[in-house]
């Protein structure tokens, strides 16, 4: 099972074993990691699973694949270059050890 490390805005770390194919959003919400809401359930429709991909992982997971994700991200106040919607990152062996940081809140 590929591992994900979530780091909250105030520095708390949560390590989660994700199912292969699960999204970074689902892995967080099913393990009660605080700070990812995922209101729309992964439909790319709300922007409440916003995360920052750690610079070391940027090449593998930092770039939105779809225009629709870009569009939702562009409406966020706290968007950065490494912003992603975590429902759109699907976990695989290749992403084992992924580190993501969480914003202060989702809205």
């Amino acid at each position: 099972m590929p591992k994900i490390k979530y780091i909250t805005h105030d520095g708390k770390e949560y390590d989660v074993d994700a199912h292969e194919g699960a999204s970074v959003m689902e892995a967080a919400t099913s393990s009660n990691v605080p700070g990812i809401d995922g209101d729309c359930g992964g439909a790319l429709a709300c922007g409440t699973c916003h995360i920052y991909v750690d610079p070391a992982w940027f090449a593998k997971a930092g770039t939105p694949a779809q225009d629709a994700e870009q569009e939702m991200l562009s409406l966020l106040d706290n968007r950065q270059d490494n912003s992603r919607l975590s429902c759109q990152i699907s976990m695989s062996a290749e992403l084992d050890g992924l580190v993501v940081r969480l914003p202060r809140g989702q809205h």
Binding site: D37, G38, D39, C40, G41, A43, A45, C46, G47, T48, E71, M72, L75, G105, Q106, H107
Partner: peptide
């Protein structure tokens, strides 16, 4: 279960900005 998964704020680019 999943109480946040509702339609009241709408979805997409016009989703309620004041939801929180």
């Amino acid at each position: 279960k999943n109480p946040r998964h509702h339609m009241s704020f709408g979805f997409g680019i016009h989703r309620c900005v004041g939801n929180r």
